[in-house]
Structure formats: structure tokens, C-alpha cells
Nucleic acid binder design. Structure first.
Lengths: 133, 133
DNA sequence: GTATTTGCAAATGATTTGCAGTGCT
DNA sequence: AGCACTGCAAATCATTTGCAAATAC
């Protein structure tokens, strides 16, 4: 329902596969292609990896989702939302959002570098509470 | 000379290939595997991609170099130094260092998430002065 | 009805591995 | 001398592509 609307809002055709992708991302917060494939197969035994790649690509093209590149790990994908940072656990791989206001950093960056800057990716690595024993 | 020393300091054997890799990274600041391969072939016509991959991997293992993962582009590698941010031009791909003090962000992250955080990657995207026409 | 999407299989591209020979310390 | 490093070719893994059938609008 809601997820259908997200697709329409980005002028994408609504297919059950796409709905399933968005549902999963919404539910998990961040998910890798492989995990997406594994999880989605419960609903769509017949879905192909090619379809996932195509859709992930398409959805990034219309800024519906965003890739999170993580040092030393495979990328995860998340639904676009306000700017935030990520903390990632080196032990278990858990990825978590952290509120983060980029204004100052973007302004400083533009002053120093003379770039026109409009996008930022922040990934912090560490050990999560669970993995600290 | 200096580059030999860097290798020894990280307990790696000194080979001409490794010196060439470090020389290039030092000179260019940031370089992708492919560019590294192309550039290094002037000195080492016989060097193999496998050797580059192995060495890059080894050097990351001892924290001599670091991978910079860039949204929408191939990774680049740089010699480890104090924490800093990166700005990357969406047009020409140029990557530049920006001074950045991570203290506050790391502290806040630890408070909020209860992670023990010790590493951070910041990549800002935009358009560089040249590409702005 | 038309254009887009899907799923398959094959193609491509990137990275890793095994191994014999070579070079570093 | 002994172990690590190199370069090659082959293997593996990730992603993309072409195309015919199915589906969305």
C-alpha cells in the first residue's frame, strides 16, 4: 500500500517484485544484495538476481534508495531519508543509523575546496554493545 | 629510500614492486587499482595485476594504506595518515583531502549507540571548481 | 496495445587462488 | 638456506546484457 505509493511517487511501475524489495529494505533498514536475494525468495521463489540488480540500479537512479559503501564489507542499500551517519560493527556487521547534521561540514568543505558539495557519506566503524561481550 | 623505510616499519619485505606502489600512491595521493596498474607498467612492464591485488591487500592488512570507497565509483587507495574527509568531483572523479576533526562525531556516536568507535570514513560528493566551468 | 519488466542463460568484469620459479634477508 | 614474493593462467565471484515471454498501465 504505502510501498506502492513510494514507487508511483518516483514514476516507477509497480510490480510485486519491486514492492517486495522496498518492503524488505524498509523492514531491515539496510540490506545487501545477497541478503535481499535470500530473503525475497521466500515470497518469490522465482525471482532472479538479475531482476534485483536491475531494480536496485533503477531505484538508485531515481533516488529512491541509496547505496552505503562500507570499508571491508559488501555494500548495503537503504531507502533514502534525511542525512545521517552510520556506525558499523566490525564483528557482526550490524549497521545502525546515527543522527548527523552535515550543514557545517558541507559549508566548511565548500569554503576550503571551492567545490559545490551536495552529498555526504559517513561510515564509522567499531564494536557494537553486543559484541563487546 | 623513504619508501623503503615505510615498508620496513610495517615489517614488510622490500621489493621494487612495493616501492613503486608506495611511490605512486604518495605522488598521486589517491589511486585506483587500474590506474595504479597502468602507471606502474612504465616502471615494471612485467608486473601483474595479481601482484598489485596481493600487495594492496597486504598493505591494508598492516594499515600502511587505506581504501577509500566512493559512492558510484571504484575504490581508490591512499597512504594512511591522520583522519581527514574526502571531497570527490562527480564530473571528473578528482578526489581531494579536507581537514576534518572527528573527535566530536566519534564521541557523540559512542554516546548514542554505545558502540566503541575508532574509525571513520567521510566522503563528500560535488562538483570541483574546474568542472563548474 | 504498447512499453516495460521479468527471468533465464550467457557474457563480461573484477578479484582471488595455486603453483613453479625468483628474490629478499 | 629458507621463506616470502612474483607472475602466469585458471578459478571464482559479482554484475551486466540480450532476448523471448509475461505484465503493467
Amino acid at each position: 500500500m504505502k510501498h506502492e505509493h513510494i514507487l508511483k511517487h518516483h514514476q516507477l511501475k509497480v510490480t510485486p517484485q519491486r514492492i517486495a524489495i522496498i518492503e524488505l529494505m524498509h523492514h531491515r533498514g539496510h540490506i545487501s544484495i545477497d541478503d535481499l536475494y535470500t530473503a525475497i525468495k521466500y515470497k518469490f521463489a522465482s525471482i532472479s538476481l538479475a531482476t534485483l540488480y536491475k531494480n536496485v540500479h533503477t531505484m538508485m537512479g531515481v533516488s529512491l534508495i541509496r547505496e552505503v559503501k562500507i570499508p571491508g564489507h559488501k555494500s548495503k542499500y537503504e531507502i533514502e531519508k534525511e542525512t545521517h551517519a552510520h556506525v558499523m560493527c566490525k564483528e557482526c556487521g550490524e549497521l545502525k543509523d546515527i543522527p548527523f547534521n552535515a550543514e557545517t561540514l558541507l559549508k566548511d568543505t565548500m569554503n576550503i575546496s571551492k567545490y559545490v558539495a551536495n552529498d555526504i557519506s559517513v561510515v564509522i566503524s567499531g564494536i557494537c554493545p553486543n559484541c563487546q561481550q
